[in-house]
Simulated assay, not measured.
Amino acid sequence: MADEKLQLYLTHRAALLDYAAPIVGCRARAEDVVQEAWLRFSGQDAQADIRHPASYLYRIVRNLALDLTRRTATERVQPGGDDLLDDLPSSSASPEREVSNQNELETISRALAQLPERTRRAFEMHRLGGFTLQQVAAELGVSTALVHQLVHDALRHCMDCLEPEDD
């Protein structure tokens, strides 16, 4: 059966390329489509009841070519989009901002270290670990209301430590 599939593919390969090329608009892309079609066609298990294998192979090529055309059209929705992207400012932070961010992280780390253990754990579990207030409460063996207050206190303490001191 595999030999029959290969022979069918080889017999129709040039015609399949001619069939796919106008759909995708490029002979090189048509080659890719036909190759992908062969992989899908040859991967069919032997029990598959394909009554017209040549027609089935052409259908695979057509569907893949249309998918590629749609995908390409979607990628080109914005004319001049590449030029617009080139003009956008970089999303990476400036060296000054990197240093400022690092300093803020160090300040927050020190602020968290100053907190009582239970307050720090509640804050870290909820704000950094993604645990719900109820999950933190269960873990710490306290009420949800108390966890809410602990997280609030920790957040307030961190904010106070970040505020510049007025002399």
Score class of each variant (00 low, 15 high):
L6V: 12
T11K: 12
A14H: 11
A15M: 04
L17Y: 02
A20S: 06
A20N: 06
A20K: 03
A20T: 03
V24E: 03
V24H: 01
V24Q: 01
C26A: 15
A30P: 02
E31M: 09
V34Q: 04
Q35I: 09
W38D: 02
S42Y: 12
Q47N: 05
A48T: 15
R51H: 10
H52W: 08
S55T: 14
I60V: 10
L66M: 14
D67W: 12
T72K: 14
A73F: 00
T74E: 14
T74G: 15
R76Q: 13
G81R: 11
L84I: 05
D87R: 15
D87A: 14
L88I: 07
S91Q: 13
S92D: 06
V99H: 08
S100H: 13
Q102V: 04
Q102M: 06
E104G: 00
T107H: 06
E117M: 04
E117R: 11
A122E: 02
H126P: 00
L128R: 13
G129M: 05
F131D: 05
F131H: 11
F131E: 05
T132H: 09
L133P: 04
Q135A: 15
A137L: 03
G141S: 09
S143N: 03
T144A: 14
H148P: 00
D153F: 03
A154P: 01
D160N: 15
C161N: 10
E163V: 11
E163L: 14
E163R: 15
E165C: 07
D166Q: 13
